[in-house]
């Protein structure tokens, strides 16, 4: 089962634990996580399900290509990381 981890910066706002989740695409895997943590989704994706502009999702260290429909394939032993781009302030 793929493992999904979140940037520690999210913990400031709400719980975002590392989770094993079922699914064969990024969309399916995240949907499984958000089913358990319903508020988490709106922090990662916009109102249409696309990745927020300054959030980056990696599969085994490589950024996903489809940031709109989240169709990149996820294998059972993959590690999915939800990270943020750095910004100033």
């Amino acid at each position: 089962m793929p493992t999904v981890s979140f940037t520690r910066n999210l913990q400031r706002h709400l719980p975002a634990p590392t989770t094993a989740a079922t699914g064969t695409t990024v969309a399916e895997v995240l949907a499984a996580v958000f089913a358990e943590h319903d508020q988490l989704g709106s922090y990662i994706l916009d109102e249409h399900g696309a990745v927020r502009p300054h959030v980056v999702i990696f599969i085994n260290g490589r950024a996903i290509r489809d940031r709109t429909r989240l169709s990149d394939a996820v294998a059972p032993d993959d590690d999915v990381y939800v990270m943020q781009a750095l910004s100033g302030g």
Binding site: N9, L10, Q84
Partner: peptide, 8 residues
């Protein structure tokens, strides 16, 4: 406005 994580 959480920036990366949207408006709340």
């Amino acid at each position: 406005n959480h920036g990366h994580f949207g408006n709340k």
